[in-house]
């Protein structure tokens, strides 16, 4: 059973990512959603069996980068892989994300192929 946490303040973007994952054949059995970093921390605590977290950067209340730093400080959750999915595309931002504990990076806008390539290491393909 593959469980994925989608963290984005845009409900539309969460829907688009879910649709693209299904259309590209990546296997996810359950999607959990959060609209900011604070909600995401609550979802992680409720779902310690998460297989992957897709994380926006710019969100109200708690940003993606603050979330991933906090996540990596939690012993129980520190092994969950995190892929940033964000409009922040500069080399400096990508380095900052990886230094903070993100495992992968995908810049919006993205094609379905780019999404599959970014997540293929973490999810099975049909």
């Amino acid at each position: 059973m593959t469980k994925l946490l989608l963290v984005d303040d845009s409900a539309v973007m969460r829907k688009i990512i879910q649709r693209n994952i299904k259309e590209t054949g990546l296997i996810v059995d359950e999607f959990v959603e959060a609209g900011d970093g604070n909600q995401a921390l609550e979802k992680v605590n409720e779902n310690l069996d998460l297989d992957l977290i897709l994380l926006d950067w710019n969100m109200p209340n708690m940003s993606g980068i603050e979330f991933v730093k906090t996540l990596r400080s939690l012993n129980l959750a520190k092994r969950i892989p995190v892929v940033m999915v964000t409009t922040e595309g500069s080399d400096a931002k990508i380095s900052e994300a990886k230094d903070s504990g993100a495992d992968g990076y995908l810049t919006k806008p993205f094609t379905a192929d780019q999404l599959r390539d970014a997540l293929g290491s973490y999810l099975m393909v049909q």
Binding site: S10, A11, V12, M13, N58, T86, T87, E88, G89, S90, T107, K108, P109
Partner: peptide, 17 residues
């Protein structure tokens, strides 16, 4: 409203980059 916000966010982000 969410879709229009995300559209502008992606255009603005791409332009920024």
């Amino acid at each position: 409203k969410d879709a229009m916000g995300e559209l502008t966010n992606m255009i603005g982000g791409s332009l920024k980059n």
